[in-house]
Design a protein around this nucleic acid. Structure first.
Lengths: 216, 216
DNA sequence: AATCTATAAATTGTATGCAATCTTTGATCT
DNA sequence: AGATCAAAGATTGCATACAATTTATAGATT
């Protein structure tokens, strides 16, 4: 069970950060929940030192809030952050898609389409993770590792907001038809259409989630 | 001299990260230089624990490369990163300026103008820092803290590339007239002009630096 | 009961210590 | 000389230890 035992010395903090990131993004750890160093160290069978380093990495990504002498809490959700996240994703993903499109092969679009098939066959609990895969697959050929990392980080945050709304909102079906539209535009190598559709896809999702957040 | 002695318990890592960030961005620490934990701990009068946490924060920002069991080095410079940085800044700063402009007061534009005066009166060694202040002042009213933090991080990286080129390139005078143009467009509340000029300002600077990098 | 206060418990921040890993050095061999 | 390799030294990764700080508890006071 303990995952850490199989890991090499030297990247415990990195792996811990990944594990915690998943727990936060998936909603398993709720916003505001305190993250006690000793408890995390016990759970992952290590000491507090790598835990603290992992928390610093998550702090930099904005998934964890760190207050001196008080400790870490899972970052809270608020409408203002969602709005920023949506706007930043729109800007970054449009850039990534525009840059990737000239190098995007049919095989890669097929790969994205296969992920979309999986989305439609899977439970909503898998939507966030698969949605990220779908988009990242299309952006992959842009050859901009830092841009991709930035987008991935923004998706992690967005996924938190999706998580709280997905079960209530009937969002997945609309998203699916939008994904199909993006795929068609990619196959047709219609850059403007692909970009416009992606932009709308992101902004509309943001608006829906924002409305949901404010209501509840 | 030791800055750490005046600092409260609990944010040593944060302050260390700021100090190191400045040293890296200013070029005082050259690309590729190894950052030894023990040495940094001695210099800042602390132990290796806060040093390690500071290095994690800088790793997340991309200013430091961390290899397990080998240690940290100041992140190297390369043309590909500069290109990404330029594109990402263009996207993010256009968004910030567009959002800030409706809330930008004349007093705030005056503030930016004063910084531009200072740029023109100062040594080139101050250009990077002041240039960042100039732009951030104009973006301030956008009320998007995470976007601003993102842009600030990108500027830190950009400043490293500026640093190596500024002494050779006659860049500052062109940049100054571009800054004046941006200020005029802001005073006139001409959003499209301000955005177009800012976009070009960023992209042109990127191109100049890229050419310089490739040549040398 | 509510508020304050002092103490104890919990938790964090940092220093130190030691084992694992990497790097250097110098001896040996070809 | 150059390559090879073992041992010493340097450096990192992590665990433990302890002090500083916060939080919880219980008693005293109004």
């Amino acid at each position: 069970m303990p995952a850490s035992t199989t890991h090499k010395r030297g990247d415990r903090a990195q792996h811990l950060a990944e594990a915690l990131r998943f727990s936060i993004v998936s909603g398993e750890l709720s916003p505001g929940v305190p993250l006690r160093q000793e408890e995390l160290a016990r759970r992952y069978e290590t000491s507090r030192i790598p835990v603290r380093e992992a928390l610093r990495l998550l702090q930099a990504q904005g998934l964890v809030h760190l207050e001196p002498n008080k400790g870490a809490v899972v970052a809270p959700l608020d409408a203002a952050e969602l709005r920023e996240n949506t706007e930043m994703r729109e800007a970054a993903e449009v850039l990534a898609l525009r840059t990737a499109l000239p190098h995007l092969s049919n095989a890669q679009i097929d790969e994205a389409a296969a992920i979309q098939d999986e989305i439609e066959a899977s439970d909503v609990s898998e939507y966030g993770r698969l949605n990220k895969s779908f988009h990242m697959t299309l952006y992959g050929p842009c050859d901009r590792p830092r841009l991709l990392e930035h987008i991935a980080g923004l998706h992690d945050i967005a996924e938190r907001y999706l998580g709280v709304a997905l079960s209530q909102l009937d969002y997945v079906s609309r998203s699916s038809s939008e994904h199909r539209g993006i795929l068609d535009a990619c196959y047709a190598r219609d850059a403007e259409a692909a970009i416009t559709l992606t932009s709308r896809h992101i902004l509309d999702a943001g608006r829906s989630l924002e409305q949901f957040l404010v209501r509840s």
